[in-house]
Design a protein around this nucleic acid. Sequence first.
DNA 1: CTCCGAAAGTGCAACGGTTGAACTAAATGA
DNA 2: TCATTTAGTTCAACCGTTGCACTTTCGGAG
Lengths: 205, 205
Amino acid sequence: MTDTETGTAPAPMGRRERKKAATRQAIADAALRLFLERGYDEVGIREIADAADVSTTTLFKHFPVKEALVLDEDAEHEARLLAAVRERSQGQSIPAALREHALRYRMAAADGDARFTAFFDLVNGTPALRDYAQAMWLRHTGALAQAIAEESGLPEADPACTALAHFALEAPRAARSHENPREAVIRAFDLLEDGWQALTPATES
Amino acid sequence: MTDTETGTAPAPMGRRERKKAATRQAIADAALRLFLERGYDEVGIREIADAADVSTTTLFKHFPVKEALVLDEDAEHEARLLAAVRERSQGQSIPAALREHALRYRMAAADGDARFTAFFDLVNGTPALRDYAQAMWLRHTGALAQAIAEESGLPEADPACTALAHFALEAPRAARSHENPREAVIRAFDLLEDGWQALTPATES
DNA sequence: CTCCGAAAGTGCAACGGTTGAACTAAATGA
DNA sequence: TCATTTAGTTCAACCGTTGCACTTTCGGAG
């Protein structure tokens, strides 16, 4: 959340952009603090704007919708997703790499620090945020499908690539209803793994 | 849409329930007419209520949200879905049966009558309605997973059943981005077909 | 038959997210 | 230095949705 040295902007920004970024950060901070304190649905937009000392109009100039106050569109997420496929270890299949990624980045790890866990719980405990997050992941379907096509040697337009991409991104959601989501995700990827193997003509490098 | 002899209520209703049903129908008719004329987003709730000569409060007593004015929760949809699995032809695999169902009931057929096509286009051309419809389908995941478990002999709690159910229901959406969605759906189910075959221990009847 | 309670419907006011319009103020760059 | 951007403001509204208090009307039990 606190973007301390996230390396997002090593480019020297002018006073203007710095102020803009500061305002944005102030809004996001205020929002997250209030949400964690009282719950997403119990905090209104106007209240957040007040806490950050801006007008609601300004708030919406920085974040298109309320959910975005919590879930920032992050280019890193997509980068990591594609990297998981492209830079997978030797001999690892594409579905296996995607499973690893899903387990690492989308299933709550009981160990992480408290701040992160609280954030995770906030998202997972609020339907609006859950849905928004899932929709964000799905927006990477096209890019992921393309990466899969390149890595597998299948024609880029092969719908099988899109299908694998979409299913892989949906797997965590499908697993959500089970007692043990991690196990369920693993099993879901078993399905994809076997199906993919049958579909792909042993072209993998 | 017009439930002329849909067989939904052969039970003799009292005057009261008949009036209620009539009001509901009047609202739905007015809404659909206006939506088709001017587009979903261009018609407000208050206007629909006026057209049906009821108050907005009454409208919301019949339909929980705006989208429901177009997409009625229909028990038949789930029944057909489960029947597709349970009453599939001899030797047909479960994924194959699901593919058939998806192609038949979820991909626009260019031939059908104009009224139906217009309705289909309205839904598919309005993001809010598309999403709502997809969410409705996904609500059948649990029931479908159970049916799959029964038919396949896998333990009912096996996440693979949920995974197959979820993926099958998501397939049409995954195919949406392609030029030829039908072909894309077919290919998506190839993936599931092969994966399922590998997972299932030849227990099928 | 009558009367009571349930349920349909009404009217109105409000809330919360979101948008538009008209405007101010500050930073930028020529 | 001046003109152009553009972040930010203020205010008012829209839209979906909900709550409240109230009326009407049907249905059933005494």
